[in-house]
């Protein structure tokens, strides 16, 4: 898209062509959500309601109307549904998040960060 065309595009159309995911975690969150729907942990309707609820709350809180906000809502909805539909509670989520942070902080640069069964390069 040349610069001139880009300048004449209106806000909505100018968002076209943006990458589907800005960061890998966004794809991971969506992949987990869709997989859990397919596995039957929660229904597609429940996912839609939870995401819609997160987006509505985000909108009323004045968050910017962009992909970063959208995927934050995806993550919020995912955490809410997992807490509701599995034995994984908020405390477990917070603890495991802390484990990952510690693993990153204590792993020297250039080495794969490892935690339990998951390895992240």
């Amino acid at each position: 898209m040349n610069e001139q065309v880009e300048k004449t595009l209106k806000p909505l159309a100018s968002l076209d062509g943006a990458a589907a995911f800005d960061e890998p975690w966004q794809a991971e969150a969506l992949a987990i959500a869709d997989t859990l729907v397919q596995n039957g942990m929660f229904s597609a309707g429940a996912w839609s309601e939870a995401l819609g609820d997160a987006l509505r709350k985000s909108g009323t809180s004045g968050a910017s109307d962009d992909q970063q906000t959208y995927y934050q809502c995806v993550l919020t909805a995912l955490e809410n549904l997992i807490a509701q539909h599995s034995e994984i509670d908020r405390a477990a989520m917070a603890a495991k998040r802390g484990d990952w942070e510690q693993a990153y902080l204590s792993t020297p640069h250039g080495q794969p960060v490892k935690l339990d069964a998951i390895e992240d390069h």
Partner: peptide
């Protein structure tokens, strides 16, 4: 956010 997603996936 990435840490929170990693936590979810691990669990």
């Amino acid at each position: 956010s990435a840490l929170r997603v990693k936590a979810l996936e691990t669990l």
